[in-house]
Structure formats: C-alpha cells, structure tokens
C-alpha cells in the first residue's frame, strides 16, 4: 500500500468550495438556532401553557430523535409539497435540531437568573416585557455562552451529516473526486484534518469568548 496525495491536491479547490458551503450553512444555522432557541425558551417560560406545550414538545422531540432521521423527514416530507434545494432543507433541519438544544440551555439559564432581579426591575418601573428583554435575557445569555459554544462546535461537526441529503459541503464535495481517483483514504484523512483544524480554531474562540465575558457573569 502506498499513499498518493496528488488527487487531493488536484481537487483541493473543490474541497475548499465544500468548506465554503459548510461554513455558510454553519453561520446561518448558528444564527437561526441561537435566536430561535432564545425565542422558544422565552415563550415556553413566560407565555401561557397553550402556547408553551407545543414548544416543549418540539424541544423534546428534536432532542430524543437522531439528526439524520429529522433530515430525512424534512427532505422527503417537504419534498411532497414544494421543491426546495437540499441546502435549505439542511439549514432548516440542522437549525431546528440545535434550536431545540439551545432552547434547553436558555430555559435553564433564564431560570437561574435570581428572582430578585425581576422584582427589582419591576419596582424600578420596568414593565413585564421590558424586564424580560432588558434585564433577564441579557444576563441569561451571558451565562449560556460556554454551553452555546459547545453546541456550536458539535453543530459544525454535524454539518458533515448534511451530505446524506445532498448538501454540497465538504464530504459531499469530495464524493466525485473520490469516485474518480479511487483514493478514499487520502481524501477522508484530509477532510478529517480540515475539520480538526476548524475545531481547534473554534475551541480557541470559545476560550477567548468565555474569558471576555467572564466578568459579566
């Protein structure tokens, strides 16, 4: 057995394009899952039971079933009514999946903000909604950063699963090159290395962000 990395070098631009698509998906999903997760958490805590029950069910359902099953469901389920590109299905699926995980974190951190904060804010003349958005949520958000960071690192790794429904990210981008060059080992080693590199940068970013926000907690 000998290794031949020349096809990897030849197809490197394709792989980089895959990294680009993957990063784009990851950024959109990160935004969607954090904002959506926060909304879901706030609604499920503060609004009445009729609204919050379906949302809790949603969190629970997305946390107890595997991502791939959810992706298949969305891909084939949505495909029945409208034809949308795989990348949107991927963003929706991954977004909902991590929205549920993030909502779970936000529920815990919002509840961890002391009740005295709410009372103090109300007695200073803030309304109910203003208290939630200016006093409670910012404090809860800062406290959520370490766990959000972990989730986002997991999420970036999970973008590789989107290749199963045909999103042209890194793994999918390599499929053609592998089938032409017959060098799966070399390609997957390089792909793994790329993911590892991205992961290291994200971990460094997480450490930096945690240090920057530590004094606010």
């Amino acid at each position: 057995m000998e290794f031949d990395f020349t096809p990897v070098i030849t197809y490197f631009p394709t792989l980089l394009k895959g990294v680009g698509v993957g990063s784009l998906v990851a950024v959109i999903v990160a935004f969607m899952s954090i904002v959506g997760g926060l909304l879901v958490a706030v609604i499920s805590i503060y609004i009445n039971k009729i609204v919050s029950w379906p949302l809790r069910f949603f969190i629970w359902l997305f946390m107890t079933t595997p991502l791939l099953l959810q992706l298949y469901f969305l891909y084939f389920g949505l495909g029945e009514w409208i034809l949308i590109p795989a990348i949107f299905v991927g963003i929706l699926g991954l977004g909902f999946h991590y929205m549920a995980y993030n909502a779970d974190i936000f529920v815990a951190t919002i509840k961890s903000v002391s009740n005295g904060q709410y009372e103090a804010s109300r007695s200073l003349g803030f309304g109910h909604a203003a208290t939630i958005f200016y006093i409670i949520v910012p404090q809860a958000f800062i406290r959520s950063i370490p766990q959000l960071g972990n989730n986002m690192i997991l999420m970036v790794k999970d973008t590789s699963v989107l290749s199963a429904i045909g999103v042209a990210e890194l793994v999918y981008a390599s499929q053609y090159a592998i089938s032409v060059s017959f060098r799966p080992f070399e390609f997957f080693i390089v792909i793994a290395a790329m993911y590892y590199l991205i992961n290291i940068f994200m971990e460094l970013g997480q450490v930096w962000l945690e240090r920057e926000t530590a004094y606010r907690r």
Binding site: K157, D158, S160, V161, S163, V171, I178, P184, F185, E186, F187, F188, I189, I191, A192, Y195, Y196, N199, I200, E203
Partner: peptide, 15 residues
C-alpha cells in the same frame, strides 16, 4: 473529539 463521527465512519469504511 475534534473530527465528525460521520467522517470517521466514512474513513474507516471506504478508506
């Protein structure tokens, strides 16, 4: 921990 399980699976199975 730094690489996706999915890629590990493909690496071992196809590579």
């Amino acid at each position: 921990r730094g690489t996706p399980y999915f890629v590990q699976l493909l690496l071992v199975f196809y590579g």
